[in-house]
Design a protein around this nucleic acid. Structure first.
Length: 463
RNA sequence: UCCGGCUUAGCUCAGUCGGUAGAGCAAGUGGCUGUUAACCACUGGGUCGGCGGUUCAAAUCCGUCAGCCGGAGCCA
């Protein structure tokens, strides 16, 4: 008989008919005359209860089935005689595909902290309710990202994982090499000779696909990247990973205003989609993980985003009378506390701050006519602060070369990037979104390591 | 990487003044009216994060390394 997914069964209007469910036992409650088995197959948060009556030929053997066993149950779908669920299966045929020794299986009916699941049980944690919900929502967000861009005619560009450029000079990079680490070839000066390495030059794992995405935007007009990026920073926080996924749209013939419109529509689409399509999982997060998450997302979807220049934002903060741990002054980057004050207390909805001082932003952002600020933009949301960072790019060759020089970067690494400003340059803009931070924000999960299947952090790559 | 806290049974934790270890949950066994993290009774379960030091004696004091948590920096 064909398999029925629990999600589909629970969506039925009426009981009746034989069904076959394949899944894992969440708990088994064996009584003298009846056994209740709670089954989950990952298709949704809810379990389906299988009822084994006393006259079942295997009743005695089935009493000792423990949590974690892989089971296949066929039987009539009935209206539940007990409270707590609409339907249940009156088990007819039961196959135990794989038992789980209860003295050894760690996910028993008890609370296990996220830390333990992450450190000792990362291989089994997708079977826990919270992680099932996290990874279904993560999937829904990935899908929504592609849908948003594909529906608007954007081309998904697969930018390289291995790169020779150091992008924006932002962050330590992981070196990629096939040289013998014990006895690498040396130059006459005694340095490691990367000319003899696999690519005949030093190479690294990418820290951003933005520069490559710009090349493709200046040919295909609307593009986006969505893939893994790597930072070798020794960051030990609940918001950083050494390997994470990033979304980076890039649009030609577009200035910073078009960029802001895109970012606003993008976030609203993502939040609307999870609220609609992941209602059961989102209700779970709202009840157990972060009590304000659904309200916050609804509020963002319904609110027009406020747009302020950095100079206006600093002015508002200075006049606010609010005491900040870090004082505000023009020229310094906004701290998380400033960002949160702006959109939570002062404005009361998402805020996009633009036109930052050039000295606190990257070389590729377009210089304004005042020669002091650049066309960068940060999208700030309640509870998190910055969720998106982007800019209109510097499209003038002479200004770009000057900025590279000012930032102390080696222009010889960027000859191909300069060529796009030499041949058919046009204004263009884009932004970046850290995917795990998005998942974190939507689910309310406190630690970023719990929203990626296999977190990579300093001293941790066990699974 | 910096500051602070923490690391004891499978899990969550207690452990006084330094005298060699305790609870709840989970598990096992038995019982049980259709249960919902079922319930009731009993039972088993420990290299006190690693290494080193002080002491007659260390879970406890000191040093060091590692990890986790919170904050900061870096950033996404």
């Amino acid at each position: 008989m064909a398999r029925d997914m629990i999600r589909d069964i629970l969506a039925r209007e009426k009981p009746g008919g034989p069904v076959t469910v394949q899944g894992w036992a969440r708990t088994v409650r064996a009584q003298k005359h009846v056994i209740f088995m709670q089954l989950n197959d990952g298709s949704c948060l809810a379990d389906l209860q299988a009822v084994v009556a006393e006259d079942h030929p295997d009743f005695a053997a089935l009493r000792v089935i423990g949590a974690g066993a892989a089971l296949e149950v066929t039987g009539e779908l009935a209206e539940s005689a007990g409270k707590g669920q609409r339907f249940e299966i009156m088990a007819d045929q039961i196959t135990v595909h794989g038992d789980a020794d209860p003295t050894a299986y760690p996910l028993q009916k008890k609370r296990v902290s996220f830390e333990v699941m992450r450190e000792k049980l990362a291989h089994l944690r997708p079977r826990a309710k919270t992680f099932g919900a996290v990874f279904r929502v993560r999937n829904a967000l990935s899908h929504a990202i592609h849908t948003f861009f594909q529906d608007r005619g954007f081309v998904w560009v697969h930018t390289p994982i291995i790169t020779a450029s150091d992008a924006e000079g932002a962050g330590e990079m992981f070196r990629v090499t096939t040289l013998d680490p014990v006895a690498p070839p040396r130059t006459q000066a005694g340095d490691v000779d990367f000319g003899k390495d696999f690519f005949a030059r030093p190479t690294f794992l990418t820290v951003s696909g933005q520069l490559e995405a710009e090349l493709y935007a200046l040919a295909l007009s609307n593009v986006y990247t969505f893939g893994p990026t790597f930072r070798a920073e020794n960051s030990n926080t609940s918001r950083h990973l050494a390997e994470f996924w990033m979304v980076e749209p890039e649009v030609a013939f577009c200035d910073i205003h078009g960029n802001m419109d895109l970012a606003e529509a993008f976030l609203k689409h993502l939040f609307r989609t999870v609220l609609d399509d992941c209602a059961e999982d989102m209700a779970f997060f709202n009840q157990w993980i972060e009590k304000s998450t659904c309200k916050t997302l609804e509020h963002i979807v319904e609110s027009p985003f406020e747009r302020l220049t950095y100079t206006e934002a600093v002015d508002l903060l200075e006049r606010s009378g609010e005491k900040f741990e870090y004082p505000v002054s023009w020229g310094k980057d906004l701290q998380s506390e400033h960002e949160r004050y702006l959109c939570e207390k002062k404005i009361g909805r998402p805020v996009i701050v633009t036109d930052y001082p050039k000295d606190i932003k990257a070389f590729y952002m377009r210089l304004n006519d005042d020669a002091k600020t650049v066309r960068g933009m940060d999208v700030l949301v309640p509870r998190l602060g910055e969720i998106i960072g982007g800019s209109q790019r510097e499209d003038r060759l002479d200004v770009l070369e000057r900025r590279i020089d000012e930032c102390g970067l080696d222009p010889s690494h960027y000859w191909w990037y300069f060529d796009t400003r030499r041949f058919g340059s046009v204004e263009h803009a884009g932004f970046g979104l850290g995917f795990e931070r998005l998942v974190q924000f939507v689910t309310g999960m406190a630690n970023i390591r719990d929203v990626i299947p296999f977190p990579r952090t300093p001293n941790n790559a066990d699974y």
